[in-house]
């Protein structure tokens, strides 16, 4: 068996480091959630808590006093989304880490509960973990790559460059995911959507989003009641025909009920004078401060791009 190479590609090393960091972050998030659960009576395996849908920007959450809360939502969305695109198009791992750090700082400044951010990371974890496992095994070997051979006859070849590619993807995904919290949890969902409408998204789409957001919670309660109803009569899902049949009925029931509801909701809207438009009552006014903050973020994004495209390759290579 060949010994591990003593000197590693610095990028691969950073990649591994980031992988560890990511794992730790998810673990910490998970631990925090667990710990909160232990404070109150145990709730694991609770049928009624299934399919919990997190809320985005409740009235309470929007009351925070951070710089993100006070920012005009239109400029906030525009500049942060621009940053997200810049962060996602970075090619250097180091720069991606810088983006991550910026997002982390934004998250901490916004002061939104970290549990939500942890959940977001946990949601991506599976997809990203796949990269960490698959990439080192499948990335084609280019000249200059470190290859570690494991096993008797070296039948497992780990290309360390794979780690660095996976780490790059993870870092980019992380920097956007962390930014979602300051972006969307710092004002009410309705206000966010109204801001989107003001920014040129078709109004009809915005209204649909608002209605969807409302009925997701209604239907979630509906299916958890149905699920409990099946559970108390002994239904335990498994991989067999009967389970699939029951699940099909269960989903069918959801669709049938929602179809019936669509008509009633529409009629309720008609009754209260709906004529194809939702009334908008919220006004936005951007102060110079908002514009300045936006400009700062745009500058930061451009800075990241410049760093990525010119500074790092030229100065450090």
């Amino acid at each position: 068996m060949k010994a591990l190479p003593l000197h590693w590609d610095p990028l691969a090393a950073t990649g591994l480091g980031l992988a560890v960091f990511l794992t730790v972050l998810v673990a910490v998030g998970w631990f925090r959630l667990r710990k909160r659960g232990q404070g109150s009576p145990r709730r694991e395996g609770e049928e009624t808590e299934r399919w919990a849908v997190p809320e985005l920007g409740t009235h309470e959450q929007a009351r925070g006093r951070s710089i993100f809360h006070r920012w005009d939502p239109r400029i906030k969305i525009a500049s942060l989304v621009f940053f997200a695109f810049c962060a996602a198009s970075v090619d250097q791992l180091g720069v991606a880490c810088v983006c991550c750090a910026i997002s982390c700082a934004a998250l901490l400044t916004a002061g939104t509960p970290l549990g939500f951010a942890a959940k977001r990371i946990a949601a991506m974890a599976g997809f990203l973990a796949m990269f960490f496992v698959v990439m080192p095994l499948t990335v084609p070997v280019l000249p200059g790559d470190e290859v570690v051979q494991l096993g008797e006859a070296g039948w497992i070849q780990l290309n360390l460059r794979g780690f660095s590619v996976a780490a790059l993807v993870a870092a980019k995904a992380l920097s956007v995911a962390l930014l979602m919290e300051p972006l969307f949890r710092t004002c009410t969902f309705a206000r966010t959507v109204n801001a989107l409408a003001r920014m040129g998204l078709p109004e009809s789409l915005c209204h649909m989003l608002l209605i969807m957001y409302r009925y997701v919670f209604v239907f979630r309660h509906e299916i958890s009641r149905l699920w409990v109803g099946m559970g108390v009569r002994g239904f335990r899902p498994g991989t067999n025909r009967r389970s699939f049949h029951a699940l099909g009925n269960f989903l069918g029931m959801l669709f049938v009920r929602s179809l019936e509801r669509t008509e009633r909701v529409y009629e309720a809207m008609l009754c209260r004078g709906y004529s194809g438009r939702f009334p908008v009552r919220e006004g936005f006014h951007a102060r110079p401060k908002d514009w300045a903050l936006g400009a700062c973020w745009i500058a930061l994004s451009m800075g990241v791009l410049i760093l990525d495209g010119w500074a790092v390759p030229v100065l450090f290579r």
Binding site: V265, R272, G273, Y274, S275, P279
Partner: peptide, 22 residues
């Protein structure tokens, strides 16, 4: 079913819906 009639994000929005439409 009140859920059919409350289609806005907050209760206040719902009450305002009709008023502003008219």
């Amino acid at each position: 079913d009140p859920d059919d009639q409350l289609f806005c994000p907050t209760v206040l929005d719902d009450v305002l819906f009709g008023l502003l439409n008219f």
